[in-house]
Nucleic acid binder design. Sequence first.
DNA 1: TGAATTAACTTAACATGTTAAGTATACTGT
DNA 2: ACAGTATACTTAACATGTTAAGTTAATTCA
Lengths: 151, 151
Amino acid sequence: MGDIRENKQARLRDFEHSLPMGLLKAREAAMSKFRPMLRDHGLTEQQWRVIRALADYEEIDASELARRSFLLSPSLTRILQYLESRKLITRSSDAKDQRRSVLVLTTKGQKLFAEVAPDSAAIYDEIEAAFGMARMTLLYDLLEQFHETME
Amino acid sequence: MGDIRENKQARLRDFEHSLPMGLLKAREAAMSKFRPMLRDHGLTEQQWRVIRALADYEEIDASELARRSFLLSPSLTRILQYLESRKLITRSSDAKDQRRSVLVLTTKGQKLFAEVAPDSAAIYDEIEAAFGMARMTLLYDLLEQFHETME
DNA sequence: TGAATTAACTTAACATGTTAAGTATACTGT
DNA sequence: ACAGTATACTTAACATGTTAAGTTAATTCA
């Protein structure tokens, strides 16, 4: 029972150093690297998540898009309205199920994606280089394990 | 160069499995355990962060409170107005520096803290038991390292 | 087959996140 | 002393988070 270990456990009891706070701070640290770049492209991080998900699929319905971009449907509804107003996406209703909307990136949307993607990748590369691939994958694995444990 | 490792690296390139998304999902998984309890007590997670920080200090000014609760000042301003309207805190201005407000938990606020704290601790215990102390501290350490690397 | 239920959104209401601008007080150097 | 600057908030404006309720279309099953 070393003091070091006891101190670590004690710190995790201190809410400023709790796991939820650690997750929040780590994410904020990461996103602060991306936000200025996205801002220069006129996008929020959530709008970029949607565009990125749309770029991966020819067609995708709103439910699937919400899952993949990890947004709640009310948020997604608003974002899709905005992206449609900027003519970055088009919506149509699924012929086989009129409840579903099918979203597609317009040419303009694809163009924007092509512009932002390299900048995004460059920042990701920097982060990876600074933190190291080994710790990066270890951290990601732990996050996934944690997520699974919480289910 | 095992395939397993290459796959992991490839997955981290897939934004749905990127580190920022992993951080977001892990945090959401954790907070979803706390939110219903906080809701029963009539608090949001941010309001609870503020109350918790206030409970740790006799007196604290808004800047320090923002740092400790990890909130931006505009958010904190609104939250303090709300908590004051519920008579959970009082504000006064620092005699030595009129720019600063000094926040203090009222008796009602202390009472609420005393009610919520055990429920919060219980949930934290469950999470700790489920995920294990070893992985918990490892994950937290990695998060701190990541945070430091990003500075 | 048609009333009840479910699914896929959308709207509403309120709280917070984020950036920029505004206000009042303190400090700094001449 | 005082003009200039910095600090500590506060306000504003817009976007998203979160929960609840509403709407329309599909599905179920008596």
